[in-house]
């Protein structure tokens, strides 16, 4: 354990450390049992979204999104000339995801790990079909996403995709449509939209749907865990419905931002 995530140029913490366990948190979670109704909201409700484009001034485009305990900042640099010399007819979309060390219950060592990579791949896939890369030969668009606070991987991917798409629009990069994403988890026989980390842990399967609601097209489906096909279909329908709502939030946030400046 000591070797992975070890960087001699940093001040490294003790070899082994444990996050504190808070008493009341434990009680709250242990009360919920499988088969009980969802705490705090209805199964089909998503958490309220706060979205602000253009927070990072030095970037070409940026966005900050907050859904309850998930907080994600995204900055876009580009389109700029690709560093590698090989000619490429299409532009390249480069997505990098970083967890802040204090973003999770357990401290994340400030080094790239496999989880960053899989999140970046998921967000890249959610954005890729929406961006008109064929108009940007020999160029690269860099998408940097920082997860300031995380409440489950699913929420991070969904919020990260929404933030990145908003930031791309803010940067004035041509797209077919805004790509927005919504997650769902199967808890018992119920489908809960926009699940938190605890809810995903209690679930048997989870799904993230990314769509371009303006065109009615799906850009990415990302499913893990065990679900029956009919449950998957139901999840897809519910997520798409919510994506339309999220789309109007994104569009409104972009409009407000333009009016202000």
């Amino acid at each position: 354990m000591a070797q992975s995530g070890f960087d001699r140029r940093r001040i490294n913490g003790p070899e082994e450390s444990f996050p504190p366990i808070y008493g009341d948190d434990d009680i709250e979670n242990s009360v919920w049992k499988l088969g009980m109704t969802r705490k705090g909201r209805n199964p089909n409700d998503i958490r309220p979204i706060f979205l602000q484009p253009g927070l990072i001034t030095q970037a070409n485009g940026s966005a900050y999104i907050e859904t309850d305990k998930t907080k994600v900042a995204c900055a876009i640099y580009g389109p700029r000339q690709s560093k590698n010399a090989t000619y490429n007819e299409n532009g390249r979309l480069n997505v990098e995801v970083k967890f802040a060390p204090y973003s999770c219950e357990q401290r994340k060592a400030p080094m790239r790990d496999a989880e960053d990579r899989s999140l970046a791949v998921a967000i890249h896939q959610a954005l890729l079909p929406s961006v008109r890369l064929e108009l940007l030969p020999k160029s690269t668009i860099d998408v940097f996403i920082v997860i300031i606070e995380s409440d489950g991987i699913e929420g991070c991917i969904a919020s990260g995709s929404v933030a990145a798409s908003t930031a791309l629009a803010d940067a004035g990069i041509e797209m077919f449509g805004l790509a927005v994403a919504c997650s769902a988890a199967l808890v018992g026989e119920e489908i809960w939209l926009d699940p938190t980390a605890h809810e995903v842990q209690a679930s048997t399967g989870s799904l993230i749907l990314s769509t371009m609601p303006a065109l009615g097209l799906v850009t990415s489906v990302w499913q893990n865990g065990q679900m029956r096909p009919e449950q998957v279909l139901k999840c897809l329908d519910l997520c798409q419905e919510r994506c339309t709502e999220i789309h109007s939030i994104v569009a409104q946030a972009l409009l407000d931002n333009v009016r202000l400046s």
């Binding site: 890729l128 097209l217 799906v218 990415s220 489906v221 065990q226 679900m227 096909p229 998957v232 897809l236």
Partner: peptide, 24 residues
């Protein structure tokens, strides 16, 4: 079952929801 244990889309193309259902 059948039980779906995982689903991914890879690539720059897009699909409509009815298409996905048929493909499933």
């Amino acid at each position: 079952g059948p039980i779906l244990q995982g689903m991914r889309t890879i690539g720059s193309g897009d699909l409509s929801l009815p298409q996905i259902k048929a493909l499933l």
